[in-house]
Design a protein around this nucleic acid. Structure first.
Lengths: 124, 124
DNA sequence: CCGCATCCTGCACGATACTG
DNA sequence: CAGTATCGTGCAGGATGCGG
């Protein structure tokens, strides 16, 4: 019978982790690091022009804490740091790509749906 | 030929849409509706006990506006409404499941990484 | 049963200035 | 170059009460 198939119940832990990986900036950072393998702090800033320095810092810290990326000190004087995608983080890449592909594919549908919804709402 | 493979550049539109689909509650709602097909308002409340009525309402509106779900009026007196997963929304199910499976699988890794990170931070 | 209207609070994020 | 420190603010989301 149906057995609810594989019952993907969403626990608080799931939600918390997803919040930390799919938030406003993490996706950008992960995406960049997955593609480039490793990037310097300011290279990331340039790759994601709209991100604030503060946000980039906190995003990197969070991703590092969750084991998604590694912070590698290249030298002390001058200070040089590199951020590398970690194995666990890399396992996310295909998922992220799938997410982006889905949005790209269905963006037209969504736009149409929105127009319809808004128009219908306008009538009243 | 690296060609950056399929270059999944993240635009503002991507980000906005993902924000509306992967936010705190949408995932729960979509997940429920995908599994059950259709649910009443209060059935959803019971299925997601921690959600507020206000949040459920706004989440449902947003998902409806984006074409992910359909709001079906069953009767007027007494008021009876049903929310059904729409085709576009259904195409998200496997993606959501993949997301949940990934977190379930890698949660141990993440926990370990966090402990290490926090411990290392403690030392200083 | 299915919502809408308000009030309220935290906190995510931006802007800006400073440091080794 | 790679950050830390501080201030200001919008707004998501909880709590509560009312209404058809």
């Amino acid at each position: 019978m149906q057995e609810t198939e594989n019952a993907p119940v969403i626990t608080g832990d799931h939600r918390e982790l997803l919040d930390q990986l799919l938030d406003k900036w993490s996706l950008h950072v992960l995406d960049q690091l997955c593609e480039q393998g490793a990037l310097r702090f300011n290279e990331l800033r340039r790759a994601i022009p709209t991100i604030t320095q503060k946000s980039l810092t906190s995003t990197l810290r969070r991703l590092e804490r969750n084991g998604m990326i590694d912070r590698v000190v290249l030298s002390d004087r001058p200070v040089a740091v590199e951020y590398r995608i970690a194995p666990v983080g890399h396992s996310l890449q295909e998922l992220i790509d799938a997410l982006l592909r889905w949005t790209t594919t269905h963006l037209p549908d969504v736009r149409l749906a929105r127009e319809r919804f808004d128009a219908e709402f306008e009538e009243k």
